[in-house]
Design a protein around this nucleic acid. Structure first.
Lengths: 187, 187
DNA sequence: TTATAATTGTGATGTTTGTCACGCCCGAAC
DNA sequence: GTTCGGGCGTGACAAACATCACAATTATAA
């Protein structure tokens, strides 16, 4: 588990063993079961999560209780309701396990401490944030340029494993179409 | 002009005058006319821009030469093709002036120098990047949860000035609907 | 095992939206 | 002035998609 986090960080910036122990001391390791909530809509968001194994969904529920999936969080992803996390406001979204999941979590205090105490890590978080921004922009682009069918095919190509791991209803609410439409797209 | 940048940064972190001069020395000030390109699709992206005045569009052109507006960049916004900027690859999008525009620009080298030399600024860029990520996520959410009409009304509420400054065709291609549909929504 | 719930496909129908077509208005260029 | 083109509205039609309904199959739990 530790190794997973270490390797992940070292993809962007090398760390000595001492530095990594120091980094690690700012995180907690957590195991969660399928359907557990890491973040509940309306509550405070104490942590940001690094996914070691498993699968989560970041979900927004509209007034009609219809769920919309903003993001699937897979192995090696960072996820949270970042808006609520950074501004210390209540969560607008929920983060829930689709499978049994293990994560490293970090509080905002520790996030900021770590950033100031170890500049490498601030640089690391900056790069991660930039990637997150770019990924989100690509998703916007896919809504602007592509039909439901094309978005479906892009997803299939990029994350083929999702189609075995996740009920189609969830894929539909990620793609922004109804379950029935998705079903007809696949045939 | 300088003051605009200074105030903008000081919204998030205080700066001494010396620090600000140091910051400023990493930027260039540029004036551009309506229709000028700051970034052209297919070319290298040398700079990231802070908009002092005016209005720009960040545009993606699909295979059918249809333009899709990823973002309008207004006063106080940071904009670039961040993916191309950070990874030193060719631009997938263009950044073009809708009005006469003034900006501060910073090269990637200077961005990185500034970040390492002045940790405050790295913290600043991190916060900006987070906001960008969150803003993009909200836009994704609006595609998932809202009809064209609702997205139109949200935009009208958030940026009423756009409706005087920008031809409806551009608003349509930001909202992801045809010009004709947008026209019918407003009535 | 048996009962219960979740998942998925598919038909019927109506709404939303895109596309093509046309006409009007208005400002810029000549 | 006249011409030309961009911006904008709107009608007609077709395509894409949502919604409702129902059935069949597959987990899941008691």
């Amino acid at each position: 588990m530790k190794e997973k986090l270490k390797e992940h960080i070292e993809n962007l910036t090398p760390l000595t063993d001492d530095e990594f122990s120091f980094v690690l001391s700012h995180f907690s390791f957590e195991k969660h079961k399928k359907n557990d909530f890491l973040i509940r809509e309306g509550e405070n968001v104490r942590h940001c999560y690094f996914v070691v194994s498993g699968l989560l969904k970041l979900v927004f529920n509209d007034k009609d209780e219809k769920q919309h999936i903003v993001s699937f969080a897979m192995e090696d992803w960072w996820e949270s309701d970042f808006s609520a996390y950074f501004t210390k406001t209540k969560a607008k979204m929920s983060l829930q396990c689709i499978e049994n999941t293990t994560v490293f979590s970090i509080s905002l205090d520790n996030y900021e401490k770590l950033s100031t105490e170890l500049p490498k890590m601030e640089r690391f978080f900056l790069k991660k944030s930039n990637s997150g921004h770019i990924a989100a922009q690509n998703r916007i682009l896919s809504f602007l340029t592509s039909s439901a069918k094309e978005r479906y095919e892009q997803l299939l190509k990029q994350y083929p494993s999702l189609f075995q791991r996740v009920p189609k209803t969830l894929l539909a609410s990620y793609l922004g179409v109804s379950r029935e439409t998705l079903s007809r797209l696949s045939s």
